[in-house]
Nucleic acid binder design. Structure first.
Length: 873
RNA sequence: GCCGACGUGGUGGAAUUGGUAGACACACUAGCUUGAGGGGCUAGCGCCGCGAGGCGUGUCGGUUCGAAUCCGACCGUCGGCACCA
């Protein structure tokens, strides 16, 4: 054993050992329980950042820990390789996305390998490989055949200058990110997956996902957004019938049918067919609708923006009173939710109230509080009353409680054929069409005669050409005749291939199944999936709490219903790691695009008034002033990632792993700082030295527990207590930081323990061995070396997780705390077996306690066994 | 706006079931080590006080023998809210 710790050499040797032994390659084995430990696959953005390191270290600690617990552990890795950044990179440096992506993968693979994760690399997949994405296409066609996929028009953001569709994130303040042109909304045909058909199951099954964090389940439930309410039809008044040209009714959805008699107007979305019809004869209305079309589709903005609206001049009739109600077009009504129309009840809805106030619409109070005096809502002095109460002014439905009123009104509407109870979801079907190049082609052929025809299964995959270079305007596939020219599979006439590709969330909705059978050539998945799945522990960022996890759950249920699986939930346990944040600095020239600077390149200066000034030195522009945009998740898009490579080169992978695990509890957001990395490095070196000095002193005698001195027993107890705590912290609580702190305390005890006797050395040997075993999932390389140095002939990787020795943990006396009136006054040492009376007597006899109770009457003594005594005087 | 978290030393954090607040580290201070270094070791380190002691977990109130932990109100910070991955 070398005297000084050389992380590079230690890590090289350990990794070589694992590679040669193929230590992490696993196959199905029914003799042991299986454990599928999965970290979310990375997008190959180019370089790893500390967020990745945190994610994969958590996964690796668990994988290695469970392996030691005797499980057959699978930990795979792959690449979420399609997506927008590859196209952006292509636009700025002219490299085809395929080449850029594959280069990034090979660089990041080497970075991941350098960290020593226990991964079965035989199973690596990249979602841009045809052998993978052909099955996206295949399942899409199966869904199409089963009515789970369908085509309809959808709204997209359109950049009129670049003639291209923009992702929401490419729209900044309503303008295209590259051109600065105001973004328009356009309707184009798209493919949708019918996730809403699974809304109920996706919601109800959440209750059974006890291995998921509560907050994720709440977020998903809110996202699905089930509301029970009524659909109500307001028959068209004659003016509307004249315009729309048919007898009909305007349907609304409401959860407050009890307020139906308080409806004083109807509000419809700008895209509503009635609004469009009315706008044909009304220039002002047409202009308003156009204005709404430019607005955001973002619900957060919709909820806070100023309520605006215009009357259509048209009317509907109240289903019970027959009274005409004006139809307004309002910007706060979403076409995509419910019926795209709401009944306006200003007295009992705050949005309607605000709208009515602005537009001088009548307010009719129809609900009163169950307690307190009746007071009519009167804008603006008496605000809307949105609580449940007792109906008033509602004809035959007056005097009812909320539930009774809804039931009675719904029943009456149903008799009239003007409404019914219905469940409405906020969840919408999943639009998967993307007008982009770098994604999985949607396997459809458009024929002038036969329409949209599925590509026959035998012709799959529809290969994505890999040599195109996008230029920022439109989709290169749509400009590539070699791709889109084809013949119709049904009639043989010339036809045009679909040039839209799939949302990359499709790729990540089932990759975890393909890891089980990455080489299955004849099927999407085979029997091996039944062995490995569901994933026993999934680990990833909280930012995926909704979309990725919901889509994966949906996709799994679809595959189950198509007879391919016998389980419906893909992830039994979910661990959501906190994000790793870093500062974001940008430079915004008056005429040009915003640039981001990595915090390591930023200089801070103090202005005369003490304010901080941030600047960076550039080659082209010299020193430029920067804007500090605050903290954000490490990502390529804001240039604030910290690459672990420097840390690994200087301190080694073990220090990087130890540091990130020690810095904070893993589910918590972590503001990046490398202060403290010294401490992690120092600790490993101290452990190395402790083992070195221990080993250098020669051979070690066998431990004889019965022959130990008090001090020896104490160190031994400390070692086994540390093991018990670390087992609980890692195995149950997943609090790696406190497990590490416990081992640090143990090492402190070992170093204070200066006992060179035979049994002293035997106790130290055991304590050091336990420390190495406990740390091995976290810092596997150095522990591999230290295990050998401690003289064990077996490899550490094959060691089982140790169990604390009950005899070592036992103690005769323990310390208890004595409080007087809840304030700490003394510590006493009592026998473990001492009964309550003895403890009480010992506490009262203590001289410090006596000082505080002298001359006072003891009113009560509370004894908490093993912990404390509280004397109340 | 809605939904959901979270507020503890100079810093990261610990306190797992209501029972010793500040474990373990970082930074800092002093001292030691005649090998210069992001080296090693020892001691100190919540605030006030010479001390005894008092005060202290965002603020105010409550429950309790006892509250960082439970309850109520308030203040603040962060996250999510349908084409980033």
């Amino acid at each position: 054993m070398q005297e000084s710790y050389d992380p590079a050499a230690v890590e090289r040797a350990a990794q070589q050992y694992w590679d040669q032994r193929r230590a992490f390659e696993v196959d199905e084995d029914t003799s042991r329980p299986k454990f599928y430990c999965l970290s979310m696959l990375p997008y190959p953005s180019g370089r790893l950042h500390m967020g990745h390191v945190r994610n994969y270290t958590i996964g690796d600690v668990l994988a290695r820990y469970l392996r030691m617990q005797g499980y057959n552990v699978l930990q795979p890795m792959g690449w979420d390789a399609f997506g927008l950044p590859a196209e952006n990179a292509a636009i700025s440096n002219g490299v085809p996305p395929a080449r850029w992506t594959r280069q990034n993968i090979s660089h990041m693979r080497a970075q991941i390998k350098s960290l020593g994760f226990a991964i079965d690399w035989r199973r690596e997949i990249a979602t841009c490989d045809p052998d993978y994405y052909r099955w996206n296409q295949w399942l899409f066609l199966r869904m199409l055949a089963n009515g789970l996929a369908y085509r309809k028009t959808g709204v997209v953001n359109w950049d009129p200058v670049d003639q291209t569709v923009l992702a929401n994130e490419q729209v900044i303040d309503g303008r295209g990110w590259r051109t600065g042109a105001p973004v328009e909304k356009r309707e184009i045909p798209m493919y949708y997956l019918a996730i809403t058909r699974y809304a109920d199951e996706l919601l109800e099954a959440l209750d059974a996902l006890s291995g998921w964090p509560e907050r994720v389940r709440v977020m998903q439930a809110n996202w699905i957004g089930r509301s029970e309410g009524c659909e109500i039809a307001f028959p068209y008044a004659p003016d509307t019938v004249r315009l729309v040209g048919a007898n009909g009714a305007l349907k609304v959805f409401t959860t407050r049918a009890d307020t139906l008699f308080g409806a004083t107007f109807l509000a419809i979305a700008a895209e509503h067919p009635v609004a469009l019809a009315a706008a044909r004869h009304d220039a002002a209305l047409a202009a308003f609708i156009e204005e709404c079309r430019h607005g955001s589709v973002n619900e957060a903005e919709l909820a806070t923006q100023q309520k605006k609206g215009l009357p259509t001049g048209l009317h509907v009739l109240h289903p019970f009173t027959g009274q005409p109600l004006a139809i307004w077009v309002a910007n706060y009504v979403l076409m995509a939710y419910g019926e795209g129309a709401v009944m306006g009840v200003p007295a009992h809805d705050e949005r309607d109230f605000e709208f009515a106030l602005q537009n001088a619409l009548p307010v009719t109070t129809v609900v009163r509080s169950a307690r307190g005096a009746y007071e009519a809502v009167r804008a603006p002095w008496v605000p809307a009353y949105a609580e449940y109460g007792i109906t008033v002014n509602s004809g035959e439905f007056s005097g009812l409680e909320f539930r009774e009123a809804v039931d009675a009104i719904a029943a009456a509407l149903e008799r009239k054929g003007l409404g019914r109870k219905r469940v409405q979801y906020r969840l919408r079907d999943w639009g998967i069409s993307r007008q982009r190049y770098w994604g999985c082609p949607i396997p459809i052929i458009h024929c002038g005669a036969c329409g949209a025809v599925p590509v026959p299964e035998a012709q799959l995959p529809v290969l994505l050409p890999e040599d195109l270079v996008p230029d920022g305007s439109g989709n290169p596939l749509a400009k590539s005749p070699q791709f889109y020219e084809c013949t119709c599979p049904e009639c043989g006439q010339p036809a045009r291939r679909e040039t839209d590709t799939m949302d990359t969330f499709v790729d990540s909705s089932w990759y975890f199944m393909r890891y089980a059978c990455p080489d299955a050539a004849a099927a999407m998945v085979d029997a091996r999936v039944q062995y490995w799945l569901p994933v026993d522990q999934y680990i990833g960022g909280i930012e995926h709490a909704i979309l990725h996890l919901l889509y994966s759950r949906f996709w799994t249920k679809v595959m189950r219903d198509l007879g391919m699986l016998d389980f419906g939930e893909p992830f039994s346990n979910l661990f959501t790691q906190g994000m790793v944040l870093n500062h974001i600095y940008s430079y915004q020239p008056a005429d040009g695009r915003k640039r981001y600077f990595n915090p390591v390149d930023v200089e801070v200066r103090r202005a005369a008034d003490g304010a901080a000034l941030y600047e960076a030195v550039t080659d082209e522009l010299g020193t430029v002033p920067l804007i500090h945009e605050g903290l954000g998740k490490m990502s390529k898009s804001v240039g604030n990632g910290v690459d672990p490579e420097g840390l690994v080169a200087r301190f080694g992978a073990d220090t990087a792993r130890l540091f990130i695990m020690f810095a904070s509890p893993p589910e918590q957001t972590l503001e990046w700082s490398d202060e403290g990395v010294q401490g992690a490095s120092r600790f490993i070196r101290r452990l190395w030295h402790a083992v070195y000095e221990h080993v250098a002193a020669g051979t070690v005698a066998a431990l004889e527990p019965a022959a130990l001195s008090a001090a020896q027993r104490e160190l031994r107890r400390a070692a086994h207590q540390t093991l018990a705590k670390a087992t609980d912290d890692i195995g149950r609580r997943r609090n790696f930081n406190t497990a590490i702190a416990a081992v640090m305390e143990l090492l402190n005890s070992i170093q204070r323990f200066a006992d060179a006797s035979a049994q002293g050395r035997a106790v130290r040997q055991e304590a050091l061995s336990l420390a190495v075993l406990i740390l091995s999932p976290i810092t596997p390389h150095v522990c591999h070396a230290l295990w050998q140095a401690l003289g064990f002939s077996s490899a550490l990787i094959d060691e089982p997780w140790p169990r604390p020795d009950a005899a070592a943990l036992a103690q005769e006396t323990h310390s208890m705390v004595v409080q007087v009136n809840g304030k700490l006054r003394a510590h006493i040492n009592v026998a473990v077996q001492a009964d309550e009376a003895a403890v009480r007597a010992a506490a009262l006899a203590d001289q410090h306690v006596q000082r505080f109770i002298a001359g006072k009457a003891v009113r009560r003594v509370i004894v908490v066994p093993g912990k404390l005594v509280n004397v109340v005087v």
